[in-house]
């Protein structure tokens, strides 16, 4: 009979994924491609927000989009209508994307001739936050009807994001949503978090967000 061994691992189960994500980031740096990971709940206006953003930037940056969805291609079809290279990543029922799935997506999309790739992650505030996709920056959309206590209920996602877009501010008068409270709660978890209140529908506040993203992409692709 073979000898039983005990192997001490003492490592987070996300460690392998984190290493893979680091590798993707350095690859993207070499290729001078910026990857934005966009996360949100379902119904936050993520696709509308994405379409507006693409419209603003597609003539400046060669742009591609990866749509992650559990099992549908509705969003990908809509985004492809904006005239940029788009692929759909089916997560096969999984509630998040990990670094491996993202890498497969990037390969399928082909990043050599792209400056900016936006990954629309699965609509969910819990699981996507746990898995580093290899993105250069992480953004999250919170919409007004969802309520201002989301940073307290889902602290992790506010910790891993670089930027928080508060969408649907055009309906602020109809909801009991306190913008200052969101800032306070979110900054409690992540003091460096950039916050942009916008309405993707009316276009209000979109300039500030677009300018931030433009700056980030330029910094990434124009420096070594």
């Amino acid at each position: 009979m073979e000898k039983v061994r005990i192997i001490e691992v003492k490592e987070s189960i996300f460690a392998d994924n984190d290493r893979e994500a680091e590798r993707i980031r350095s690859q993207l740096k070499q290729e001078k491609t910026f990857l934005l990971n966009l996360m949100s709940s379902p119904g936050s206006g993520k696709t509308t927000m994405l379409m507006r953003t693409i419209e603003e930037l597609k003539y400046e940056f060669r742009t591609g989009v990866m749509e992650a969805d559990i099992d549908s291609s509705v969003d990908a079809e809509k985004v492809a209508g904006a005239g940029v290279k788009t692929i759909q990543i089916h997560t096969g029922g999984m509630c998040h994307l990990d670094a491996g799935m993202t890498e497969q997506g990037l390969k399928e999309l082909g990043t050599e001739d792209l400056d900016l790739v936006i990954l629309e992650n699965v609509g969910n505030l819990v699981c996507p936050a746990e898995f580093d996709t290899g993105a250069v920056r992480n953004a999250m959309i919170l919409s007004v009807p969802e309520g201002h206590d989301k940073p307290l209920k889902y602290p992790l996602i506010f910790t891993v994001c670089d930027v928080l877009i508060i969408n649907k501010i055009d309906v602020l008068p109809y909801f009991d949503f306190d913008l200052e409270k969101v800032r306070e709660y979110a900054h409690m978890r992540n003091p460096d978090l950039k916050i942009f209140p916008v309405s993707a529908k009316t276009g209000e506040g979109m300039d500030a967000w677009i300018n931030w993203l433009r700056q980030q992409v330029n910094d990434w692709i124009r420096t070594d």
Partner: peptide
Amino acid sequence: GNEINLKEIKAC
């Protein structure tokens, strides 16, 4: 309290 760690493996 938010850990998911692989502690050890018993194997042969």
